[in-house]
């Protein structure tokens, strides 16, 4: 829901527990980079990651290519779509990225309000937006995606206590200054993308907003302020992608068979 799996951390191949909460794929094209630590510069680079990650799909790129190459309808479509006609990882990830670029969620009630429809939000939701702005949340959560466009330290005023071993951006840059710097997540559709934070430890929006206000801004929101901000955040739910599921082409006799249980 909301382009996420709604699990604290995802389940990988052979029931492996993922190390980190899966970010939503919706509006991911607006992100400065992909993954919490930004290790993929764009959607094309991101698309290749999970396929070969032993903790996720546990495929190899070669096997993924072999599967698609073995299916005549795919080879035909790759010839039609790409000038070089190749079924290779470069073209596969480019196609996946092209699909993911379409997964945007326009026309949220907040968007309508921004465009001048003053009736699109209730008084409480407008109040929540004002609190969101005045408290300083917009310093990081801004732009069309309401986030996704910078890396910030999680735990500025107060350290964040977690059992997660994720180090954030430091895993990419190697710089100690980047420890616990994570990509600021988009808040678009945030009411649908629970649980929250890189470790998925915040189960509800109220909990997430309260934690962020204290740890990032040194603010303790009143119950009224919390309710207002949460009401505002729910106005960021846009039109969800609605597409017809394709009929997948059948495998051929030479298609490598799946072995989900290592048998």
């Amino acid at each position: 829901m909301g382009g996420s799996d709604n699990l604290k951390t995802s389940i990988g191949h052979n029931w492996q527990k993922g190390p980190i909460n899966s970010p939503t794929v919706l509006n991911a094209t607006l992100n400065i980079a992909q993954f919490w630590d930004g290790r993929a510069k764009d959607l094309k680079e991101q698309a290749g990651g999970p396929i070969a990650n032993p903790g996720e799909m546990a495929f190899t790129h070669e096997l993924a290519v072999d599967v698609l190459k073995s299916i005549p309808q795919y080879t035909s479509e790759f010839r039609q779509v790409f000038p070089n006609g190749k079924v290779d990882m470069a073209n596969i990830t480019q196609a996946i990225a092209a699909f993911e670029e379409t997964l945007v969620t326009p026309n949220a009630r907040f968007d309508k309000w921004l465009k001048g429809d003053r009736k699109a939000l209730t008084a409480q939701e407008v109040r929540g937006y004002q609190t969101f702005k005045n408290a300083g949340c917009v310093a990081c959560h801004n732009g069309p995606a309401v986030g996704g466009n910078s890396f910030q330290k999680f735990g500025i005023v107060e350290a964040y206590k977690t059992a997660s071993t994720a180090q954030g951006r430091m895993a990419v840059t190697g710089k100690d200054a980047d420890r616990f710097n994570f990509k600021v997540p988009t808040l678009r559709n945030v009411e649908l993308t629970y649980p929250y934070f890189h470790d998925g430890e915040a189960a509800t929006l109220h909990q997430a907003v309260d934690t962020m206000a204290r740890l990032q801004l040194g603010r303790t929101f009143s119950d009224g302020e919390l309710n207002d901000v949460v009401a505002f955040l729910k106005t960021l739910t846009g039109e969800q992608p609605n597409f017809k599921l394709p009929i997948l082409p059948p495998s051929s006799d030479s298609t490598p068979r799946p072995h989900p249980f290592n048998d």
Partner: peptide, 28 residues
């Protein structure tokens, strides 16, 4: 003048490529 801007609808430049990408994602 607001710090948040509306999201623009997706612009599909190459529908055939999008369809192929969709199939590649949904295969798994």
């Amino acid at each position: 003048q607001e710090p948040i801007q509306p999201i623009a609808p997706a612009k599909v430049r190459n529908p055939a490529m999008v369809e192929l990408g969709k199939k590649a994602v949904l295969r798994a």
